[in-house]
Design a protein around this nucleic acid. Structure first.
Lengths: 128, 128
DNA sequence: TGTGGACTACGAAGACCTTCGTTGACACCT
DNA sequence: AGGTGTCAACGAAGGTCTTCGTAGTCCACA
């Protein structure tokens, strides 16, 4: 199943994608072992097969144990989910989401510095 | 169906909640008319009935046309969805989500000012 | 009285998601 | 050759979500 725009990954699919993003190319067994949720081996297998059909992952079948790779970069998916959420519950305002996100938990000084940097570049941009 | 913690609203439910948050208490007809997606009247009705069972909305049946009200405040749902997303795709770092959100689209000067204010209070907090 | 409009309630269909049991292939070891 | 372990493939079940048709109720009005 090839599409022009990839579907929003489901929860289970997201779990698997995360493993693939972190580990890189992996077999079903590796994903299943990394992903220590309750789900059985065949469940993970089946989901990964479906993800292949959807175009979310690629499969290398040259080995007996097929090797899967994420076909969508982590960043893209993050962006997709963020804009999705922004549109659906924050009236299209990313800043609203950012404010909400930041006010929930505490943030490390490094991240604060990054934020400040981004903020300042945005401010500079707004001036012009 | 009463629960301790409310379920994550589905897409259709979120659309209805948005109408209720914006309009306040509304009948099915009003929601259906505001919500100009393709869905039929009975679809919206059914969904709102289910939402009542789930505890997402309250229903006042004293009138012939029942009047529905959101039972979850917009802020709570926003927080719920944000922390959800943070946990599932941003490794638990709200700042990462904020950075992603802000780098996607441009932000108004007013929102930038708000962000700066929040950022500075966070920085102050981090110092101590 | 009876006809039409506005409403709720009900049920069921179809899609998708998640789950897992079972089967068959393959390879290795005894 | 037989047994064991690992793997993909398949199919089906059970759940949830979304959709809508249909039926019943109530009321207003001709």
């Amino acid at each position: 199943m090839s599409r022009d725009t990839l579907p929003r990954p489901t929860d289970a699919e997201l779990g698997i994608l995360r493993v693939l993003w972190d580990r890189g190319a992996s077999t079903v067994r590796e994903v299943h072992e990394t992903l220590r949720d309750g789900s059985g081996y065949t469940t993970v297998l089946k989901t990964m097969q479906i993800m292949t059909e959807k175009g979310l992952v690629m499969r290398d079948e040259s080995q007996r144990a097929h090797v899967y790779t994420a076909r969508v970069p982590r960043e893209n998916t993050q962006r997709q989910l963020v804009t999705d959420l922004v549109d659906r519950v924050f009236g299209g305002s990313p800043a609203r989401l950012a404010l909400q996100a930041l006010s929930t938990k505490k943030t490390s000084p490094e991240e604060l510095a990054e934020l400040r940097q981004l903020l300042e570049s945005l401010e500079k941009e707004a001036e012009s």
